[in-house]
Design a protein around this nucleic acid. Structure first.
Length: 421
DNA sequence: TCTGGGGTCCTAGGACCC
DNA sequence: TCTGGGGTCCTAGGACCC
């Protein structure tokens, strides 16, 4: 059996843990740049605030209902996620952290115990240890565990745990599950399937395997098999990223080269750090910039450049150098830029390095510099040491006007809050 | 005025090989 | 008139996930 444990309204719940006055109040958390809604408390969902809605469209609704609004605070959420995952790990020998707020657990060998009792204990313990409410779905396949999880969330009397362990329960659950809510069925496939009169997960399982294969390929076929009770998706171990991207929308529109180059330098530095963290080098670097595609009344521009690096690298100074060279080739005057980004791809492991005959760079020395920079930043805080090109202006920086303090990781944040109170 | 950021996998088609 | 068979690799685009 597989279990899927998932935090309820994760980001909203994180905001609540350190601010109990928010209990019972509607909360929304906004995306970077305070753009759109990416998390809602139950109360906010009841008010009809949709996921992904741009914040400015909700102004009136937020004011009349006194909705608490937060900018996203990924330092806080990341730390709370660790705490949740650590607690879950105590309950299951094999675990796959699937996302910031979800983990699969393998429950093989647990047949002799009462999974319901065990699951409820797990759910209670996570909430007690971390303050984050969670739900657990248990079933013979990952996709069915996802289905079970939705029921665990929906019905209070399950006490956070729902188990699908018989064909009768499976049939009942699938008949109550909208086809669009199935893991692996996105907007596009949901539309196609509805066109074929498939409205529930059960309807889907009543089609033949070959029809599904023909309509949706092997991925759809796997979903079909999993819903029918045949496990195709196993536990996965985390693997190195095959591409790494750092990109942001700017807090304000930028027209000048200088602040954009500062932003791109920071994005390249971000990619370099991520590469070093997983002990990899990148061989290809992509830089892109674009204007605001929603502003249809303004001149639009999108461009990107892809560079093959002569020697694979994870050196911040080198990646910034190439990123800025790339930016110069695609930057055009006369546009109001909204967003830029840097992508590293063709990622290879750090060890065996194919040298370049004409390479003049002292790689050993620079690698030591990076090492020192990383350890200083680890001890004294992010960006304590950085490359001059990353700048200090930060004109490009995001808007996050409603940021909560980093309660769980930053002592000075906490002291400030206490002083105010 | 104001609309996020980061990933993965699969497929079809073209270019090329013998 | 009649024009093979079997591969690989790469890329762009489309689908999905959180």
């Amino acid at each position: 059996m597989y279990g899927l444990i998932d935090c309820n309204n994760f980001y909203a719940s994180c905001e609540r843990v350190f601010n109990p006055l928010l209990n019972g109040k509607p909360i929304v958390v906004l995306s970077n740049n305070d753009g759109c809604v990416i998390a809602r408390s139950t109360e906010a969902k009841v008010l009809g605030i949709p996921m992904g809605e741009p914040a400015y469209k909700l102004k009136a609704l937020i004011e009349t209902n006194q909705v608490y609004v937060f900018s996203s605070n990924y330092v806080l959420y990341g730390d709370m996620s660790h705490r949740v995952m650590n607690t879950i790990a105590e309950f299951a020998p094999e675990m796959e952290v699937y996302s910031i707020d979800e983990a699969f657990i393998l429950l093989d060998g647990f047949e002799i115990i009462d999974l319901k009792v065990y699951g409820q204990k797990m759910v209670r313990t996570v909430t007690r240890n971390t303050g984050i409410p969670v739900s657990l779905g248990i079933a013979p396949t990952k996709t069915l565990a996802k289905v079970a999880n939705k029921f665990a969330k929906k019905y209070k009397n399950y006490k956070g745990v729902c188990i699908i362990d018989t064909d009768e329960k499976r049939e009942k659950a699938l008949k109550l599950t909208d086809i669009g809510d199935v893991w692996g069925i996105g907007r596009r496939y949901a539309k196609t399937l509805r066109y074929h009169s498939i409205n529930t997960a059960w309807d889907f399982t009543q089609r033949t395997k070959s029809w599904v294969r023909h309509t949706m390929g092997v991925v759809g076929e796997r979903t079909w098999l999993e819903l029918c009770g045949t496990s195709c998706l196993e536990m996965e171990t985390p693997s190195d990223k095959k591409s790494i991207c750092t990109s942001r929308s700017f807090g304000e529109r930028l027209t000048e080269f200088a602040p954009i180059s500062e932003a791109v330098s920071n994005f390249a530095a971000g990619c370099a750090e991520k590469l070093r963290k997983q002990h990899s080098y990148g061989c290809v670097l992509t830089v892109f910039i674009h204007t605001n595609p929603f502003a249809t009344n303004q001149a639009q521009y999108y461009n990107q450049t892809v560079m093959q690096l002569p020697v694979p690298t994870n050196d911040t100074t080198e990646l910034i150098d190439y990123a800025l060279r790339g930016l110069r080739t695609i930057f055009a005057e006369g546009y109001r830029y909204k967003k830029a980004g840097v992508i590293v791809s063709e990622i290879v492991p750090e060890r065996p390095l194919q040298g370049d005959l004409f390479d003049t760079r002292n790689r050993e020395k620079f690698s030591k510099v990076m090492c020192v920079m990383d350890s200083l930043n680890a001890s004294y805080g992010r960006q304590k040491v950085k490359i001059a090109a990353q700048g200090f202006d930060r004109k490009w920086k995001l808007k996050n006007e409603k940021l909560s303090p980093c309660f769980s990781t930053n002592l000075s944040d906490v002291l400030q809050v206490n002083a105010k109170e």
